[in-house]
Amino acid sequence: MLTLPCPFCGPRDETEFGYGGEAGVAYPERPADLDDAAWAEYLFLRANPRGWFTERWVHRAGCRQWFTVRRHTVTNEVVPDAAAQEVR
């Protein structure tokens, strides 16, 4: 079980969290301006790297805040994402 660093509550067990997938996939400014391919890319396509991955978690059974961490997809190393104090 992972230990995840909630920026508000500190390190807590993975069971308290929900997973939010790749971070930094912003909702398009004007979805109506996107063609179908670009919209589908926003909806469905995500990076799947072997290595470091910036991803979102939500402390669902805790403070209910979303936050971002960097996780190594091979070793499961998790470090707080210092660059992502703004949640996304």
């Binding site: 939010g20 979102r56 939500v58 979303w66 949640v87 996304r88």
Partner: peptide, 8 residues
Amino acid sequence: LEEWQQTE
């Protein structure tokens, strides 16, 4: 609701 409000 919380996800949209917090993250977007």
